[in-house]
């Protein structure tokens, strides 16, 4: 799957740096960002809010049957991360010799997510690393 250059570019703040947003009216934190706060609807007051990337593993799986784009990368581990700011965030957990388990502490790193063939773009993305 080739990705349109603009489609990964437009979410770069989020995919590199976990920038989501926060509703100044009710305090809800969102990742990825929303245009409309789930609680406040048309009264939403959403402002950019960067997550620290710190959190813990809430659930995880090792994917051995990947989609086309990732077929040369399997097996790899993906996790549902409970961030310290609240939102659950999905992401790869990179191998670093530590055992992945529920409750394990993580932080983010920047890695390649996938590459569009030999001539296309390299898509960089946050991933999680066990601390």
């Amino acid at each position: 799957m080739e990705t349109a250059p603009a489609s990964s570019w437009r979410k770069q703040n989020a995919s590199y740096n976990l920038v989501g947003n926060k509703c100044e009216k009710c305090g809800a934190v969102y990742f990825p960002s929303r245009i409309i706060c789930k609680n406040c609807g048309r009264e939403s007051k959403l402002k950019e809010h960067k997550l620290t990337g710190e959190g813990e593993v809430y659930s995880y799986t090792n994917i051995t049957a990947p989609s086309d784009t990732f077929k040369d990368d399997a097996p790899y581990t993906v996790g549902m991360i409970k961030t310290i700011e609240g939102p659950l965030v999905e992401g790869h957990i990179v191998e670093n010799g530590k055992e992945v388990k529920i409750g394990a502490k993580v932080r983010t790193v920047l890695r390649k997510m996938y590459v569009d063939g030999d001539e296309g773009l390299i898509h960089y993305h946050y991933k999680f690393e066990l601390v």
Partner: peptide, 16 residues
């Protein structure tokens, strides 16, 4: 380097 690492990710990690 891991399969998902390159000179840019290494530079970014060092920079951070």
């Amino acid at each position: 380097p891991g399969r998902d690492e390159d000179a840019a990710t290494i530079a970014a990690e060092a920079a951070r």
